[in-house]
Computed example of a mutant assay.
Amino acid sequence: MIRPAAVLFDRDDTLVADVPYNGDPGLVRLMPGAREAVRLLRAHDVAVGVVSNQSGIGRGLLTEAQVARVNARIDALLGPLDVWVHCPHVPQDGCACRKPAPGLVLEAARRLGVRPERCAVVGDIGADMGAARAAGARGVLVPTARTLPDEVAAAPLVCADLLDAVLRVLGDVPVAPDGSPLPRRSS
């Protein structure tokens, strides 16, 4: 399996705990393993980004500025990510960007200068896997309490947590318990 050039995470319930329509950076809490997963990707020169549906904007519950402040808080906790792309539309808009459509993944790949098929998309619901599939990227599901059993069954790859997902997409990478890369032993 070829190592991805980029890993694109869903934001809510994947990188950070979901707070519905969150516009308050003070409510941002990283999901377990998020810091270690991002650190490991950086150690292996893999670009890291976020692709996120933010329908609260289209619903009038959030502003672009509030979403930007929440994203900036995540950057402060993880170190600046390489790309942020979000869809501000409501499902009824029928846009090409809202997951499971491929638009967010295609735009993130374009901004990073990589082919979509060299991306892995890590998310917690079927829409994340659908966007990956539609864009030609690799999907990795990290289920949460709101992930439906049918979404788990249909996912191309299911992992227990973010660090497991990153280890799987990177391949054979030795790591310490804190997620930091270990030097390979010579044979």
Rank of each mutant, 00 (worst) to 15 (best):
P156C: 02
G58I: 06
V19P: 11
L8R: 10
G179Q: 07
G56D: 05
L40V: 04
M1E: 14
L141D: 08
T144N: 11
P102H: 07
S52F: 07
P32G: 01
I57L: 12
D161V: 00
L112I: 02
D93C: 14
L148E: 15
S52V: 04
L27A: 15
R118V: 02
G94S: 09
P80V: 10
V51Q: 10
R118A: 15
P102M: 05
C159T: 06
A47H: 14
G113Q: 05
L162A: 01
V142R: 03
V142D: 03
W84S: 07
G60T: 02
Q92C: 02
V70G: 01
V169Q: 02
A65V: 13
V121E: 08
V46G: 09
V16E: 00
D161R: 00
E36V: 05
F9G: 04
G49S: 10
P174G: 12
A37V: 01
S55H: 08
L162W: 00
M31A: 08
V38M: 08
L112F: 03
S187M: 09
A145S: 13
V105L: 10
L182G: 12
E117C: 10
G60P: 03
G130E: 08
G58C: 08
V19A: 10
R29P: 01
G179W: 04
I2A: 15
L170F: 10
E107Q: 14
P80K: 13
S55V: 08
L81C: 09
P149E: 14
V48P: 03
W84D: 09
D24V: 02
A76L: 11
N53G: 09
A131D: 10
D10R: 00
P177Y: 01
A134Q: 04
A153H: 04
A72T: 04
D82H: 12
A6L: 04
G123L: 08
R35A: 15
N71Q: 14
V28S: 00
D128W: 07
G130I: 04
L41V: 09
H89D: 08
A76N: 08
A6G: 05
D124H: 09
R29I: 00
L182N: 13
V28A: 00
N53R: 06
H89I: 08
G103C: 04
V175T: 15
L62T: 10
S55A: 15
D10G: 00
D178M: 03
A135W: 02
A43R: 10
R168P: 00
L141V: 06
P100L: 03
V50D: 05
E107T: 14
D82Q: 09
M129G: 07
A96Y: 06
G94C: 05
V158A: 08
F9N: 06
G33D: 01
Y21C: 07
A160W: 01
R118L: 11
A145V: 13
G113K: 01
A165S: 04
R59F: 03
N71E: 11
L106N: 07
A153T: 05
E64T: 15
R133T: 14
P156T: 10
P80G: 13
L27H: 15
W84P: 04
D164W: 01
D150Q: 14
L167T: 11
G123D: 10
